[in-house]
Simulated scan of single mutants.
Amino acid sequence: MEQHHHPVQGLSLGTFREVVSFHFKGQAACGPKVYIQAGLHASELPGLLVAHYLREKLLKEEENGSLVGEVLLIPVSNPVGLDQTLLTYQMGRFDLASGENFNRHFPSLVEEVALKVECELTNTAQENVKIVRRVLSDLISKRETVRAVDSLRNTLLQLSCDADITLDLHCDCESVLHLYTHPSSIDDVMPLAALLGAQATLYALEQGNNCFDEVAASFWAKLQLRLPRFPIPVPTISVAIELRGQLDVSHLLAEQDAERILDFLRVRKVLSSPLSIEMPKASHEPTPLDGTEVLVAQKPGVIVYLQSCGVYLKPGDPVVDVVDPISGQTTRYCSGVEGVLFARQNRRYAMPGMDLAYIAGNSPLGRGSLLSA
C-alpha cells in the first residue's frame, strides 16, 4: 500500500488541508482501476467508517496477492468541509466560503478534450479510451484554481479520471440503502445493488449541476455526441452509494458494507479471491431519477411521518403530516406514484419549500434539475 498526500490550495494564511489517498496495487499492471471515495459531503459519516474497513480488507487482499490492477481509496475526500463545525453542528454539505454544494459544479472538460483528441483518435475503441484519458489527465493537472473548493474538486478529478469503476460513498438524512448511476452503467451496477441489499437504484443521463459521480460517466457520453465518427465507449462504471441515513453508523453495518463492496470487486475480477457469499437477486428494478416524486412542504409546522423508509407505496397512501400547533391545522401529504419511499428528512420541523420525502416512481415526471441542493 502506498499513501499519498495532496495539499488543498486556496486556503487562508496559516492553515493547511490535504487529501490523503491510499493506493493498493496488484500483480497485473494492466488490470482495472477502482476509485473509492468517502465523505465528499463531509457530514455524511457512514462512508468514512466503511472506508476504514475497506482499507483493512484491501491491505489483506494486497498482501495475499489477490488484487488485480489497482484500488485507490480516499477515506476523507473533503477535509475542508469536515472542519466546518458551527455551534457543535458539522456543516459539511456546503462550502461556507462560497455557499456551493461540495458535490456540484465539477468541470466536465468535454469541449477542451474534444479539441485536443480529434486529430489523434483511431478506429479502435480501447485505444481511444487511452488517448482521451491521457489528454483529460493532462488538462486537469494544468487547470488553475483559486478557491479551495475548486482545488479540492480538481484533486478528486485528477485521481479518478482514469478509473474503470468509481464508487462515491454518501448517505441521506434518513433512508434505506440506495444507488445513483448513469444509464450506461445500469447492467453493471445492479449486481452491486443486489450485494448491498439496496432498495432503489436511480439512473439519469444528467442529475443536474455536475455532481462527481455523474461527471465520471457523462463526460464520455457527451464526448460520444461531440465526436460521433469515432468509437468512444463509456468505460467508467460510476455509482453514488447512499449508505442509509446519517445516524446509521455502526461497526456491524460498515464492515458488512465493506465486504459487499469487495464482493462486487470480485465479480468485476478486480479481486481473485472467491466470493464470500452467494450472489443474491436484486430486490427491485432500476427506476429513472426523473420518476422520483418529491413531497414538498407547503406550510411550516411539526413533521410527523406516517410511513417508514423502505415501505412500498401506492398512489394515495398517506406519507407525512405537517402540524401547525397554533392554528390546529394538519396538512397531509400523500404519495402520487407507486414505488419505494427511499428517503426522508431527519429533522422534524418543516419550512415552506422543504423536501419532506422521496418516492422512487417508475415513470418520468418531467422535472428540471433532479437533485436537491
Rank of each mutant, 00 (worst) to 15 (best):
K314D: 08
E285H: 15
V337F: 08
Q246E: 15
V296Q: 10
V302D: 09
D324Y: 06
A297S: 14
S327C: 02
G301M: 07
P286N: 04
G328Y: 12
F264G: 00
V294E: 02
L262T: 01
I277L: 08
R260Y: 03
K281H: 13
V322L: 12
V304C: 12
G316Y: 08
E293C: 03
C309R: 11
V304L: 11
P280E: 00
G328R: 12
V294A: 08
D257C: 08
L313G: 09
V249M: 00
T292Y: 02
V319T: 07
P274A: 06
Y312V: 14
A258G: 06
P286K: 01
V340W: 01
E278I: 12
Q329V: 13
V319C: 03
H284C: 09
D290R: 15
V294D: 00
L252T: 15
I326A: 09
V267R: 01
L271H: 02
E338A: 15
G310M: 05
V337H: 03
P318K: 12
V320T: 07
D257T: 10
G310V: 06
L271W: 01
G316E: 07
G336R: 14
V340A: 03
K281L: 15
D290Q: 12
I303E: 07
L275C: 05
C334R: 11
Y333C: 00
D324L: 06
E259M: 15
D317M: 12
R244A: 10
Q307L: 03
D257R: 13
V320C: 06
I277Y: 08
R268C: 08
Y333G: 00
L243R: 04
P280F: 02
E255T: 10
A282W: 02
P300N: 06
L341Q: 05
Q246G: 13
E293V: 01
L341P: 00
K314L: 07
K314I: 02
P274W: 07
E255N: 13
K314R: 13
L265D: 02
L247R: 15
Q307D: 01
Q256V: 10
L295S: 05
L253I: 07
L253N: 10
P318V: 04
Q256L: 11
L306C: 07
E278Q: 15
L275K: 09
D317G: 09
D290I: 10
L271G: 00
V319Q: 03
L313D: 00
K269Q: 13
I326D: 06
L243K: 08
V267A: 01
S335W: 00
